[in-house]
């Protein structure tokens, strides 16, 4: 196990057990959000910690609590929960026996607690609303954090892809450092024909092709390069890819059995290429 992995393992375990600091928990959350392996680790430690709870006796949960939850869902707030029937509690007094003008003491005794209850309810609602606002803000921040982490992952992916591409390009041009290198042009055989330049390494039998001014490539098509031997049909040299300066680019090894290449051509083909050229866009002899 690497030191970094060990540290993450410890953080995840301590956070799951409780008692970790806010910054430790935040670090675990951030790591878990960015990495599925850390998420799996956190999940496993979470399950392990909850064994502490699963070992406890499970009392029967009262139905009245479920009723109270349902009432809250309907937008009603239960007056007092849980409602407990107390043996030996206050006796039930028939309403009829209490009719008559209430005394001032009774009025005070009723109004004051009601007013206090109303004030308490107001404060409670106010506090609850404030709590819900905080929860909403927190949810918003969590969403933003998720989005930022998603972008970071995308950026990291793009960086890796770019690095690979750069390495490929560097590899393609490594062989250019040879005194035998020749620069050729495919001679246009029609007016306004795109320009095709070929860097040719005869010793290593490689071409680097750059084609300029080709029409924009439709999304369902590819440009395909063809070797034109002295005799016989064109031989596919593979697909071109977007290159520097709006060019189309290809780095190609010449097949060992292919001799006397006199020219080259580029055709527009369905995605993935064709065995034979379909719509030739440029071509001619190498000069």
């Amino acid at each position: 196990m690497t030191a970094e992995r060990e540290r993450i393992d410890e953080l995840a375990a301590l956070a799951a057990a409780g008692g970790a600091t806010g910054s430790e928990r935040a670090e675990v959350d951030a790591l878990a959000a960015a990495d599925p392996e850390v998420r799996a680790l956190v999940r496993e430690y979470g399950d392990a910690a909850s064994l502490m709870a699963l070992a406890l006796d499970e009392p029967v949960a009262p139905a009245r609590v479920l009723d109270a939850v349902r009432q809250r869902m309907r937008g009603k707030t239960p007056i007092a929960t849980p409602v407990v029937d107390r043996p030996g509690g206050a006796p039930v007094v028939p309403i009829g026996s209490r009719r008559g003008k209430p005394s001032a003491t009774v009025v005070v005794a009723v109004v004051v607690p009601l007013a206090a209850a109303a004030a308490f309810a107001y404060l409670w609602l106010h506090e609850r609303n404030a709590g819900e606002d905080v929860a909403k803000n927190l949810a918003g921040l969590e969403k933003k954090l998720d989005e930022a982490q998603r972008r970071e992952r995308l950026a990291a992916g793009a960086m890796v892809a770019a690095q690979k591409k750069l390495e490929q390009l560097e590899g393609s041009f490594e062989w250019v450092a040879t005194p035998l290198l020749e620069l050729k042009t495919v001679k246009a055989v029609a007016p306004d024909q795109p320009t095709i330049k070929v860097l040719l390494d005869p010793e290593n039998r490689r071409w680097v092709v750059l084609a300029f001014d080709l029409p924009p490539l439709p999304s369902d098509k590819d440009y395909q390069l063809w070797f034109m031997p002295e005799k016989g049909d064109p031989v596919s040299a593979g697909l071109l890819a977007p290159g520097p300066g709006h060019s189309q680019f290809g780095s190609i090894a010449i097949p060992p059995d292919l001799k006397n290449i006199k020219g080259a051509a580029i055709s527009l083909e369905p995605k993935g290429g064709s065995p034979k050229p379909t719509e030739v866009k440029a071509g001619g002899p190498l000069i």
Partner: peptide, 12 residues
Amino acid sequence: FAILTLGTVPPP
């Protein structure tokens, strides 16, 4: 960007 690798962690 540093890409964190954790080696072998059992999947959930």
